[in-house]
Design a binder for these strands. Structure first.
Ligand SMILES: [Zn+2]
Ligand SMILES: [Zn+2]
Ligand SMILES: [Zn+2]
Ligand SMILES: [Zn+2]
Length: 374
DNA sequence: CTGGGGACGGGGCCC
DNA sequence: GGGGCCCCGTCCCCA
């Protein structure tokens, strides 16, 4: 990770984007020049059969084919599919299945077929395991329709015996310090707000004292994230050969490098992604599939995050509120704008965060007060 | 300008 | 150990 706390990260988000040319669309692409611009889509006849493979990343492809050909090449120009002309095929434009030529329709059919439990298409791990079209009642299940939890709870104790650190993670030993109460992944604000962690056995990193609910979590942390770990690769620093970013762990670097190599490529428009699930989401923009629907208004979304944001619009009390005037906002950006525009109550703390306004199974930790310049 | 939707990325957890 | 998935969040665009 780039050693920054969440606050810093949040506060410097703008700069951050400026740093990594691949982070977001606004950023300019470095001039590494794409090896080959997206060409014509594959012959439709192959679409169906290739479907399976298209969902897999070319993870082994070490060659940064289209190195700097980040998606933004399409999107930032405003030409991305939903816009007029894509450098690629015009069929990839605006997701409007009805207007698609026969070939595309066939592709769509193939896509939908894949979504069906058709045996021959069934895959070991269904990509859309939780894709029921309709979602259960608000609020909790709203985002998790049929199967809120596809998998049984983990049983850390099962792994416990595998773990033999100097200081055994006595499965229920309380974390040494409050710091550890924070969930491992918690990007938590060093604001002193402590988030109560589930009372489950924790695997604690002997080097940095972070704890994890599972052994694999700890394991990953030690190998990929913990700069303090003895055998950790993280002791070194790993710099990206494509950009200036430096990481303390190989794993993090590997992850980052994918944003350069973009091994997951859309066969319809040539757009490439760093991770398979990103590609999946993108492909939905072609197929028009919108597996996430709002229980309140039946509006459907292709992206769960967008549904989540949408849900906010149904809530009277929104997630982000200005403590100055009490007005609430569905998005941080909106609140930020509000504050920037001057709420009128200067002395008030930036904002309050009300996770309860957000019906999710996972209670987000309160974000640290965005201390950025107001 | 405001609010909402679309598309997308990073990091983390679980299997 | 890697893949899949989720959460949180951003940015852009548009009504
Ligand atoms: Zn890089
Ligand atoms: Zn595409
Ligand atoms: Zn709705
Ligand atoms: Zn206000």
């Amino acid at each position: 990770m780039l050693v920054e706390d969440s606050q810093t990260t949040r506060a410097l988000m703008t700069k951050k984007y400026a740093h990594c040319p691949l982070k977001k669309r606004p950023v300019l692409v470095r001039e590494e020049r794409p090896a080959t611009p997206p060409t014509t889509p594959p012959h439709p006849a192959h679409l169906a059969t290739r479907l399976y493979y298209d969902y897999h990343c070319d993870t082994e492809n070490d060659e940064p084919q289209n190195l700097s050909t980040k998606p933004e090449d399409l999107s930032k120009t405003g030409n991305y599919p939903s816009k007029a002309s894509s450098p690629v095929s015009t069929t990839a434009v605006k997701v409007e299945p009805r207007e698609w030529p026969q070939q595309q329709l066939e592709y769509l059919a193939a896509c939908r077929a894949r979504l069906e439990p058709a045996p021959e298409l069934a895959r070991p791990t269904p990509q859309y395991a939780y894709l029921p079209p309709i979602y259960a009642p608000y609020p909790l299940e709203e985002l998790y329709p049929a199967a809120p939890s596809l998998s049984p709870p983990a049983h850390p104790q099962l792994y416990a015996h595998h773990y033999s650190p100097a200081s055994p993670p006595s499965s229920v030993s309380p974390p040494p310090c409050p710091e550890d109460l924070r969930s491992p992944g918690s990007v938590s604000s060093d604001s002193g707000i402590s988030v109560s962690a589930p009372r489950r056995p924790r695997y604690q990193c002997p080097d940095c004292a972070k704890s994890y609910s599972t052994y694999s979590g700890l394991s990953k942390h030690q190998q990929y994230h913990c700069a303090a770990a003895e055998g950790s690769l993280a002791r070194k620093s790993f710099s990206c050969k494509y950009c200036a970013k430096v990481y303390t762990s190989l794993g993090a670097l590997k992850m980052h490098i994918r944003t350069h190599t973009l091994p997951c490529k859309c066969h319809l428009c040539g757009k490439a992604f760093s991770r398979p699930w990103l590609l999946q989401g993108h492909i939905r923009t072609h197929t028009g599939e919108k597996p996430f629907s709002c229980h309140h208004c039946r509006r459907a979304f292709a992206d769960r995050s967008n549904l989540r944001a949408h849900l906010q619009t149904h809530s009277d009390v929104k997630k982000y509120s200005c403590s100055g005037c009490g007005k609430t906002f569905s998005r941080m950006s909106l609140l930020s704008k509000h504050l920037e525009g001057g709420c009128g109550v200067p002395g008030a703390s930036p904002y309050e965060y009300r996770p309860e306004a957000m019906p999710t199974s996972h209670q987000p930790h309160p974000p640290s007060a965005p201390v950025h310049a107001y």
